[in-house]
């Protein structure tokens, strides 16, 4: 199905992953370090690279930077749990996704399929919603306002994404609740005003004069369409 390159100094993992992913129908090449990984990438032109962060010599981030200099091949990073700063750094460096060790092979295979699908449909890295000076990356779950990261909870993020997917369209509280929590909670619209208030506190420069999440009285909320 796809040509994959696994770069990791753990030879057992490279061997096992090669076996697993080959069974899943992929063509897999392995490399034990960054330097040989770059050579293999140049030689085999993989569709996707699985890259370990912690490697002797050229580490994962340096390898990623060089891969990015060569071309737009999608990259999934194998990271350590909890290294949020490292993960953000990885995304800034152009990684497409990451899994944390110890991970399940099935989970990695699912991530590979998702990244390949996004790449095939032209959304090369991930879906990025923009509006005014906001930039929302739906895969990396990252919000930037004028280039600065805004820390939102997963639910606040989902509310913002629901509104930004349809700029200019007013969504009722019920529609937002259904989109965020599912239809079984569609009557629980009482939360929304409170959620929007806190979302504005984090997102808006002046929460009392919102620019991004506007209220249409008696109808719902809207993310304004570009003028």
């Amino acid at each position: 199905m796809a040509r994959l390159l696994v770069i990791d100094d753990d030879r057992s993992l490279v061997e096992l992953l090669s076996d697993y992913l080959t069974r899943a129908g992929h063509e897999v090449t392995g490399a034990p370090d960054g330097q040989r990984g770059l050579a293999a990438a140049a030689a085999a032109s993989p569709d996707l690279v699985i890259l370990d962060v912690t490697m002797p010599g050229l580490d994962g981030w340096q390898t990623l930077a060089r891969l990015r200099a060569e071309g737009p091949v999608p990259v999934i990073m194998l990271t350590a749990r909890g290294d949020e700063s490292e993960i953000l750094r990885g995304f800034a460096g152009g990684a497409d996704d990451y899994v944390t060790k110890p991970f399940s092979f099935a989970q990695l295979a699912a991530r590979i399929s998702a990244v390949l699908e996004r790449t095939a449909t032209g959304r090369h890295t991930s879906e990025v919603l923009t509006g005014a000076d906001l930039e929302v990356d739906t895969v990396r779950h990252r919000v930037l306002r004028a280039g600065v990261v805004v820390d939102l909870t997963p639910t606040e993020f989902s509310i913002l994404v629901a509104l930004m997917r349809e700029p200019g369209r007013v969504l009722s509280a019920r529609q937002i609740v259904t989109s965020v929590w599912g239809s079984e909670f569609m009557e629980e619209t009482g939360y929304i005003r409170r959620y929007v208030w806190h979302l504005r506190q984090k997102l808006e420069i002046n929460p009392h004069q919102p620019r991004y999440v506007l209220n249409e009285r008696g109808i719902g909320y809207v993310f304004p369409a570009a003028p």
């Binding site: 509280a173 009482g190 005003r193 409170r194 806190h198």
Partner: peptide, 16 residues
Amino acid sequence: IAADAPLGLDDDGGAD
């Protein structure tokens, strides 16, 4: 409890 939006805010919660 998460603080409620202040009263008098020009926001009706999108009541439908």
